[in-house]
């Protein structure tokens, strides 16, 4: 009887020892996998940093500016060719806050025509047509040319220069 118990305990002991070895092996295998995954994660992090730097390098303003000017023949946005849209914070209505005066008249093209709802004609270019005569052009000997606004075509000329009270009518939508 006693012998049988001894044999059983010995077998159990052997089994436990084998189990310990197996689980230790398993733990080490898992640990190696974990290490590998962590190394992968670190490598991805490095790669991400690299790509981030690369993205900035490729998207830096100096590069885009140079290529846009040279290859695409683009030019910097000028104030008089910019549309300002504003959203009413309560009604969420988008409206056009036009700093220039809206004048009904023919022969408009580009952004202003689009803003006024007229279909932009192909080939008309994006530069708004300006009046032939520029009234109130000061006797300017300087190199900086005077650009009359679109309103000048219809003879509605905003006062030259500006003063504190000179605010655009369309700015009420702000």
């Amino acid at each position: 009887m006693l012998t049988r118990i001894n044999v059983m305990l010995a077998a159990l002991l052997a089994l436990c020892a084998l189990g310990l070895v197996t689980s230790q092996h398993h733990a080490r295998r898992l640990f190696i996998d974990l290490e590998r995954a962590q190394a992968h994660s670190a490598a991805h992090e490095v790669r991400w940093n690299q790509l981030q730097v690369e993205q900035t390098e490729l998207a830096k303003s100096a590069l885009i500016d140079a290529r846009a000017r040279r290859e695409l023949g683009m030019q910097a946005v000028q104030g008089e060719r910019t549309l300002h849209l504003s959203i009413d914070p309560i009604t969420r209505v988008v409206s056009l806050s036009q700093p220039w005066r809206e004048v009904p008249g023919p022969a408009r093209s580009g952004v202003r025509a689009a803003a006024a709802g007229a279909p932009a004609r192909a080939g008309a270019g994006s530069v708004p047509r300006v009046g032939a005569a520029a009234p109130a052009r000061p006797p300017s000997g300087s190199s900086q040319a005077v650009r009359p606004p679109a309103g000048a075509a219809a003879g509605k000329q905003p006062a030259p220069g500006r003063s504190a009270g000179d605010r655009p009518a369309a700015e009420v939508s702000r």
Binding site: G79, P138, S140, P160, R162, R167, E171
Partner: peptide, 24 residues
């Protein structure tokens, strides 16, 4: 300043009248 204001999307506060430059 013009570029910065546009980049910051600040609405104009004056009409887009031409800039008047005196002779001197």
């Amino acid at each position: 300043t013009g570029d910065s204001l546009r980049a910051l999307r600040i609405a104009p506060d004056a009409p887009m009248a031409q800039v008047v430059l005196p002779a001197e």
